[in-house]
Design a protein around this nucleic acid. Structure first.
Lengths: 126, 126
DNA sequence: CAGAATCCTTTTTGATACTG
DNA sequence: CAGTATCAAAAAGGATTCTG
């Protein structure tokens, strides 16, 4: 064949491309700006709110809380609140969360490993 | 061990979590709202602007053009303009593009295949 | 400590109209 | 056809303040 395509993709319906596909919503959550990084961080270790925030550099309290709720509602993250004062809450991935995280990590790692082959920023304001 | 973690992630520095890591920028591009879908669509086939737009349902001309430029500047998409009138331009993935696309597709496919195990939208406005 | 609430700024996005 | 330009609307993000 003289046209290069990703063979595996050829025989996959790819419903995500459909506007109303529910998987598109989840994909959006998982690949959201902070969602990706949170999944990566939690795949390494169970973390408390403050620690997680320190690990995912640059995230604000607001976005951390918000993104965690979304991922929790998707069943990817488990919020474990110990009933003590002061509050002690830790976050961990659910089994499902580990499965997606593995794929996100694979992607992120590929990028890190091929940074030199990729052209950096060709974008300049006009 | 009594603490479940993604073993493979344990021994990976995960630079993306660092605020200034260049890989974070690329990851952002690849996992952007439309970037992901464009990569998936182009992995299936080389497409012209209009066709690509039809394939990635819901995308506007503006976002398609813009996202394509970003992906092109990253070296993931190749823009091939035939020198004819009226214009004929087609887009295809570069070898590098196919490599990331494979991973994005793996993620998307996992989500599609596990939709039933995932909790849909737990979000309701207060 | 964890996070909800509030206020405000910055980006993103989408229609629409226009051009080579 | 394949975009670019422009403008307004919407969403995302951040800083700060406050509470159980």
């Amino acid at each position: 064949m003289h046209k290069q395509t990703f063979a595996d993709a050829q025989h996959w319906p790819a419903n995500v491309l459909a506007q109303d596909c529910p998987s598109r919503v989840i994909l959006q959550h998982v690949t959201s700006r902070w969602g990706t990084l949170i999944l990566i961080a939690l795949a390494e270790d169970t973390l408390r709110f403050a620690n997680l925030r320190r690990r995912v550099q640059g995230i604000s309290e607001r976005m951390l809380a918000q993104t965690l709720q979304v991922l929790e509602s998707d069943g990817l993250v488990h919020r474990h609140a110990h009933d003590v004062v002061p509050p002690h809450v830790d976050y961990r991935l659910t089994p499902l969360g580990f499965e997606v995280a593995a794929r996100v990590i694979d992607l992120a790692r590929w990028i890190e490993g091929n940074l030199d082959r990729l052209k950096q920023e060709g974008q300049t304001a006009p």
